[in-house]
Nucleic acid binder design. Structure first.
Length: 521
DNA sequence: AATGTGACCAACCGCAGTCAA
DNA sequence: GTTGACTGCGGTTGGTCACAT
């Protein structure tokens, strides 16, 4: 709803701001209307609206820079376009969003992320700005209320749609129409893992990462489709899986990434028909020598972009979707903020790193879950397996969690985050120092810190390949050292204990005394 | 009643991308 | 290949309003 004019219809208010010339909007803002009148900013008046409406009625939409030239309106073309699009268009639908619209927005956002304009096309009469404002408000509201953003029903729906849309041929052969240089690493990784799983109940929040704006930015107009991944890239990822096996590291077991998705079998398997040959020469994997040259091309090729959460900076509790009071957390009592969690935000960029956020957010959930699960298991029956670690109660389809109709779900992508956060070492630049202690207790030196966010890129436009490579590299080092009895890399607040029996690491955080976390196995 | 606070939202800025000339 | 016009988007700002103190 347009703001009430703050003055009479004389077109200029006492608070009107006169814009100095600038180069914005194709130079239009630097120009002057008619008689060199400076461009005006601030709320539109009724008179200005009338002028603009009349102009559009006569000339139609478009060529907005001509408006000021031909109508005498002291507004830049961009401002005219925005005003028309957001307030003056005759087909605009005023008023607050209906419950149906709100639900649709949530669904659309789950599918396409912050593609406000595209979302607006599905909401007749609504503008992208409206939707964006609504979503930002929703984020804040959910954060305040401790509610997740996506309800499980929407998650399931998205997941089902994605399954239907999946086309293995497109994936393998590449979609020439959308063969863009950006790839959805979350899809890649999740699918890569899925290809090794007989059963994969995948969180739609794998599609949060994948189908949301992160994917869309890379994939353009087909958010729900699988990202076309070049074969060589896919091979690299497959090799990565092989690498783990080479190292004696168990492949990531199948697990339920999404607690509420217990029926959607992920039927697609990349192993079927994919011309992948097991690496005949494992020795060529440079990871065995401490670096991962196989990821060199990956790095710099895979650019991941992420959903914007636009969350406010509220100091300690900076995690937008995962407040301490979240029913998801408190209800199960599995997830709670930790010093580590809060420390993450200190390293996270404050803007639009959607994947990063989803990764860390998901990892936080998984991490906390895993910690508790492992902790319980450890108490009950000794060392846990990685499978135990992953299959946390939170992921139990039978969970009795109640979801608010407008709330949502724990993000997704537990897997992708788990890759970065749980199964791989979290730091880079490991240094082995001295002789490991006799009984597999290790510490590590970190070049960047001690937890997940530190190993994530700190800028937008993450190069996931680089991150993965670093992680893998650290993984390798640790793994090797652990195989020799454990690591001792001083200088960090965290220790990693290697449990040889199940090939699982237990993280002991010296600054987080509440629980031990399984790190990777 | 006065004041403070926070939510909401229109509008703006800067940047990137697309498209046509 | 370059340029200009336009569009889309993330992020932000500032005004208004409702509510609490």
């Amino acid at each position: 709803m347009p703001p009430a004019p703050n003055d009479s219809d004389n077109g200029m208010t006492s608070t009107d701001e006169i814009d100095p010339p600038s180069s914005e909007e194709g130079g239009s803002r630097g120009s002057f209307s008619g008689g060199n009148a400076p461009l005006k900013k601030g709320p539109w008046t009724d008179a200005e609206d009338a002028i603009l409406v009349e102009y559009v009625r006569k000339h139609g939409e478009g060529n907005w820079n001509a408006v000021q030239r031909h109508s005498g309106l002291s507004r830049c073309g961009k401002s005219c376009r925005l005003r028309w699009a957001n307030h003056l268009r005759p087909d605009l639908r005023k008023g607050s969003f209906s419950p149906e619209e709100e639900k649709l927005i949530v669904e659309l956002h789950a599918k396409m992320g912050n593609k406000w304009a595209r979302m607006a096309t599905s909401l007749p009469g609504r503008t992208d700005n409206e939707i964006k404002n609504y979503w930002n408000t929703r984020i804040k509201r959910c954060q305040r209320a401790g509610l997740p953003l996506y309800p499980p029903d929407i998650s399931s729906q998205i997941m089902n749609e994605k399954q239907q849309n999946m086309n293995i041929d497109d994936f393998i052969m590449g979609d020439k129409q959308h063969n863009e240089p950006s790839y959805n690493i979350a899809d890649i990784l999740v699918d890569d893992i899925q290809s090794n799983q007989e059963v994969s109940n995948v969180s739609p929040y794998s599609s949060f990462c994948s189908s949301s704006s992160m994917a869309n930015r890379g994939m353009g107009s087909h958010p729900d489709r699988m990202s076309p991944i070049p074969i060589d890239l896919y091979k690299q990822l497959r090799e990565n899986d092989e690498l783990l096996s080479d190292l004696g590291i168990p492949r990531i077991p199948k697990f339920n990434l999404f607690p509420y998705e217990n029926s959607g079998k992920f039927s697609r398997s990349f192993n079927l028909g994919f011309p992948y040959e097991p690496d005949p020469d494992p020795g060529r994997h440079s990871h065995l020598h401490g670096n991962f040259s196989t990821f060199q091309s990956f790095q710099g090729t895979v650019k991941v972009e992420l959903p914007s959460l636009q969350y406010p900076d509220n100091g300690n509790d900076s995690w937008p979707f995962f407040p301490e009071t979240s029913p998801v957390l408190s209800g199960d009592a599995y997830l709670k903020s930790s010093p580590t969690a809060s420390s993450q935000s200190e390293f996270l960029p404050r803007r639009n790193d959607e994947l990063l956020e989803s990764l860390v957010y998901g990892s936080q959930a998984l991490s906390c879950n895993s910690r508790m699960q492992l902790y319980d298991k450890s108490l009950d029956a000794g060392n846990p397996s990685l499978y135990d670690v992953i299959r946390s109660p939170l992921h139990d389809p039978g969970s009795d969690n109640k979801w608010d109709a407008n709330s949502s779900f724990i993000p997704l992508n537990s897997f992708a985050s788990s890759v970065s956060n749980e199964f791989f070492p979290l730091t880079t630049g490991f240094t082995l120092c001295g002789t490991p202690p006799e009984h597999a207790s290790s510490t590590m030196e970190s070049s960047g810190g001690s937890y997940s966010s530190e190993c994530l890129p700190s800028t937008s436009g993450n190069e996931f390949g680089g991150m993965l490579m670093e992680n893998l590299s650290g993984f390798n080092v640790e793994k090797q050292a652990a195989a020799n009895g454990g690591l001792l890399i001083p200088g960090t607040e965290e220790q990693y204990q290697y449990l040889s029996e199940d090939d699982v690491y237990i993280k002991h955080s010296l600054h987080d005394h509440t629980e031990d976390a399984p790190v990777f196995g």
